[in-house]
């Protein structure tokens, strides 16, 4: 799907003008990374989804006040962060939240540099996710089910309504490629693993 908005400036202009396509693009750009970011604070994906949804509503309500897309992004991250922290606080009063406390003491994104790093993290994860989503049909599906969902061969075959044998041979090919790399280098960089599996899938 090609975008009619050639850059951030025109995208924001479209957003200001309430063009649905622009709104959707802005939403899709930030939704998943924001949810992932919020979840690292709350530990609860469903709650984070709610928080992010409401954050978009707040941003939508003041759409004209953003002069650049970066402003909008900064607003979203800050408001999501505060809402997530507040949600976690209110949860803490009911039961101990070791995960949140550990997260907060480990990550401490209160300074701009630390927050930028958190954003970098979730944006990279989104890119990886998008790349897998963009894999051509059958290979992409199998890869996703194998790698992300850790499903068994039988489960994958059932889900895709294909021969178990087909799944097995696809899987075998991937393993073969990896083994070759491993034999040659004795250790495989995860980056290379990605590249091979993605490359093979194409």
């Amino acid at each position: 799907m090609t975008s009619p908005y050639i850059d951030d400036t025109t995208l924001l202009a479209g957003f200001h003008q309430r063009e649905t396509l622009a709104e959707k693009q802005v939403f899709q750009k930030y939704f998943k990374p924001l949810c992932l970011y919020s979840e690292t604070i709350t530990g609860q994906l469903a709650a984070s989804e709610d928080i992010v949804a409401e954050s978009f509503e707040k941003a939508w309500a003041r759409r004209l006040e953003f002069n650049t897309l970066e402003n909008l992004k900064a607003f979203l991250y800050h408001i999501v962060r505060n809402a997530s922290l507040n949600y976690t606080e209110s949860q803490k009063r009911h039961r101990s939240h070791h995960e949140q406390i550990r997260y907060l003491s480990n990550h401490e994104p209160q300074l701009p540099e630390a927050l930028e790093r958190e954003i970098l993290r979730v944006e990279l994860l989104q890119e990886i996710y998008q790349e897998i989503e963009n894999l051509p049909d059958r290979c992409g599906q199998i890869f996703k089910l194998l790698f992300i969902h850790h499903q068994t061969t039988q489960e994958i075959a059932d889900q895709l309504s294909i021969n178990v044998q087909t799944v097995r041979s696809q899987k075998a090919r991937a393993i073969q490629l990896i083994k070759t790399e491993l034999l040659r280098k004795r250790r495989i960089a995860p980056a290379l693993l990605f590249a091979i599996l993605l490359g093979y899938a194409r």
């Binding site: 939704f31 992932l36 994906l45 949804a53 978009f56 994860l125 990886i128 992300i148 995860p190």
Partner: peptide
């Protein structure tokens, strides 16, 4: 980012989101 297991866990979370419904 270089740990496939950790990356997979984050990807799995993104997969559970209801982007269309929220939209």
């Amino acid at each position: 980012l270089n740990d496939p297991d950790r990356v997979a866990r984050s990807l799995e979370k993104m997969d559970r989101l209801h982007e269309d419904q929220v939209w």
